[in-house]
Amino acid sequence: MIDAALSGLPSGAAYALLGVAVVLLYRMAGVLNFSIAVFGAFGAFIMVSLFERGLPFGLAIAVGVLAGLALSAAMGAVMAALFPDTDPITRSVVTIGMAISLFAVAFRIFGDRPRSFPPLFPSVSYTVSGVSLKLSGMVALGLASVLAFAIWLFLRRTRIGVQVAAMSTRSTTAELLGIPVRSYTVAIWALAGAIATMAPILAAPTRQADFTSLGLLVVPALAAALLGSFHSLGLTVVAGLGIGVLEAMAVRWPAVSTWRTTLPFFVILVVLLWRQRGEVWDEAR
């Protein structure tokens, strides 16, 4: 049972990383990005294509992450240029437009057949008191936690972090104070894009890896972000890992195995409704 649970860690780490990217963009750039996993899938597919053409694995990953970063930054620049003073809902609808366009572009470039992703790490496992720990799972867990913690620390402890928090609530006011809102916004999108590219690279070796599936990784990631209230990076990481573990355990449970991908949805629903029970009114006072 524990082995089964641990086998969900790479997927869980992917959800966690994407969730972190979603939370970052929501908190700092005021947008719920439905296309974030598509950016990541783009980077990952570029990585795999380069690897298939003989580029060294490490270099291919670097280029892939950079590509995801660049694509996300470009989209961030579009958002900053066209929707400077727009409400989060409209911006989020814009990212639906981005997702649809990018899906189409990706089918053009990569096709829709699954690719085989090389495993990131040799399949080494260590046995600690009867439980076998896979290297890949441990590294995935570590990567997600460390990244989230580093970002949290940066936002918390630096003046730029304060300025970013300020611009996320009132961007016009922030600009009037001389905070370079557009540059910061693009930088956040870039960072989110890089993180989002790591997610499919981690998860793809263990699952069906066609472009659509990787692009729709956004659904569990959104679930993780939701459980983190679109605010807490730590909770998001925990929730993402939890969803991954839950899915992996459900595989072993025939009664729910078929429906396992719907499980998180119902869990989220219950948690959310319970947590939001006091939110009788919208924020507009």
């Binding site: 719920l32 809902i89 989020s92 959104l222 972000a225 939701l226 679109f230 949805f265 989220i268």
Partner: peptide, 18 residues
């Protein structure tokens, strides 16, 4: 009635995915 804005968007997308 309780989920608004993006929360609702995510819940409906989750519903579609389920």
């Amino acid at each position: 009635l309780r989920l608004r804005g993006i929360n609702l968007a995510v819940a409906t997308l989750g519903f579609a995915a389920a």
